[in-house]
Design a protein around this nucleic acid. Structure first.
Lengths: 112, 112
DNA sequence: CTGTATCCGTGCCGATACTG
DNA sequence: CAGTATCGGCACGGATACAG
């Protein structure tokens, strides 16, 4: 496994968009907004994602400091994922995006 | 050339993100925010994009009603691209994203 | 000037199987 | 329970050439 730096764009808006676009990132973040969750919990909340992809998206979110990963040294293993302050700071934006999304859907339906 | 419906996700936030994420869409929209532009003008503003991709991104923006395409029946041809009301309604969100992007960059740099 | 057509690399998922 | 390994499809973006 090779470590890749995966540098984000320098243009602010591109940077912002790149950090939160990813097939499941928004939804994952949404679920982490109301408290830490274990991997298994996220799997139950998002049955459509394969485990590999879920972990993958979490890793990227972690790399960009939107999500924190806390490992408890136990057997059986336990790992908690939670939104960082930086991740939480996205809440208003995500809300706005959500509203705009519904607005957009309504507008498009009207023109048919 | 086959017509593809390219249906957007139904979950509002995914829909919103999908409509505006695309390698150059945000920047293109940004430039169209302050008035209509011809294709050649956009090419000058965005020298990094190949013409094919530029047109491609514009077509998708048009399909999603963020951009309007106005053809003047002339020789030589003239086409103006402009932001629709729906496109303009993204302005506050794009601004927020932009601010968040800079904020994010600062935060990451601090932890080094 | 405003586009298509073609060809192609690579990155993002996704399914499935296996592991500590 | 919380992961990795492997393989593969396919959409996305990019370079380049051609066309009305």
């Amino acid at each position: 496994m090779t470590r890749v730096v995966n540098r984000l764009p320098s243009l602010p808006i591109e940077r912002a968009l790149k950090t939160i676009s990813g097939r499941w990132k928004a939804v994952i973040l949404y679920h982490l907004m109301d408290g830490p969750k274990r991997l298994s919990a996220l799997q139950r909340l998002l049955p459509q994602i394969s485990q590999k992809v879920l972990v993958q998206q979490l890793r990227e979110l972690e790399e960009h400091r939107l999500v924190d990963r806390k490992v408890f040294g136990q057997v059986p293993p336990r790992v908690d994922y939670s939104a960082t302050p930086l991740g939480l700071s996205l809440q208003p934006i995500m809300l706005a995006l959500c509203e705009w999304g519904t607005h957009h859907a309504r507008e498009l339906d009207e023109s048919r």
